[in-house]
Design a protein around this nucleic acid. Sequence first.
DNA 1: AGATACTTGACTATTTTAGTCGGGTTTATA
DNA 2: TATAAACCCGACTAAAATAGTCAAGTATCT
Lengths: 141, 141
Amino acid sequence: MKLTSKGRYAVMALVDLAKFNNINPVSLRDISLRQGISLDYLEQIFAKLRKKEIVQSVRGTQGGYILNKKAKEIKLTNIFEAVDEKVKTVQCKKESKKGCNGKPVKCLTHNLWDELESHINNFFNKKSLDDLVKDNEEKSV
Amino acid sequence: MKLTSKGRYAVMALVDLAKFNNINPVSLRDISLRQGISLDYLEQIFAKLRKKEIVQSVRGTQGGYILNKKAKEIKLTNIFEAVDEKVKTVQCKKESKKGCNGKPVKCLTHNLWDELESHINNFFNKKSLDDLVKDNEEKSV
DNA sequence: AGATACTTGACTATTTTAGTCGGGTTTATA
DNA sequence: TATAAACCCGACTAAAATAGTCAAGTATCT
C-alpha cells in the first residue's frame, strides 16, 4: 500500500506554491528547482490541478500559478482527487451494491476495507494546505 | 493509493480459515473455492504466513492449515507484514535521518507522510482477526 | 499404491508508474 | 516587434510492480 509520487509531488508543489504565493505567480520552474521535481512532470500535475480549479494559471513571461482558493479551504482530499490519487481498498465494484466478484453476498472483508477507506479519507479531509504551511513555519522557527 | 490483492487475499483467506478452524485443518483448495482466489497464488501467500508463524501447516491427505495463534492475537499489521504489504508514504530513506532526496533538510511534507503512515498503521494495529470474524457473524445473524 | 495436500522456485503477461519528448500558444518587456 | 519566459497539450516509453501461472516435487492419510 503506497502513495504514488504524483500525489506526493502535487502536495509538495502546492505547499511550496502556498509559501511563495504573495503577489506574484510562482513559476513551475522555480518549484521544480526548489523541490527537485521534473518540470515536465510538474506541468502534467498542474494541468490537473487547474482543471479542478485548485490553482489558476498566468501565462506569459513572469507568469506562473497562483492558488485559486484560500489555503485553508484546500483539503488534501481535493488535491488527491485532482491528480487521480484515489484511495482504493476494494476491488469489488460499487455499482453492484450488494455482492462482490459476481457473488450474491458481500465478501467476508468488505466492511473492513470500507472502514479503512473512510479512516484514510478522514485524515485527508481534516488536513488543509494551510495546516501544512503552518506546520512548516513552526519547524523552521 | 491502493491495497494490493496480495494483502487483501491474505486477510480474506485468514478470516475464512478462522471461521472454519475448529478441529480440522482447512485446505487451501477449500479456501480457493469459497473465496475465489487462485490456488497457486494462495500457496504463495500461505508460504509467507507460515514463515511468520501466523499459520501452521499439516501435510498429507486431510491436511491444510490451522492458525498458529489465537485469532485475537493476530492483528492486521502482522498479516500485512507477513505478505510484504508495507504502508509506504515516503520515498526518502530512513537511514539519512535528517534530509530527504539528498538535501540537508527534510522535505516540506515529510512530517505529513509520517503522520499518515502512523494513522494507517494505527488502524491495522487495532483490528484483530477475531474482530473480523465477529463482525462477520453479526452480519449473518 | 494412490490421492490429497503442502512446498518450492522459476517464469511471464499485464498494468501502472514515472516520467520524457516535441511541438505548440501567450504575454511581458527590452 | 522580437525574444524569451512561461504555460499548454498529447503522444510516447522504460522500468517496476502486480498478479498470477506452471512444473516438479515431498509428505501423509487411507
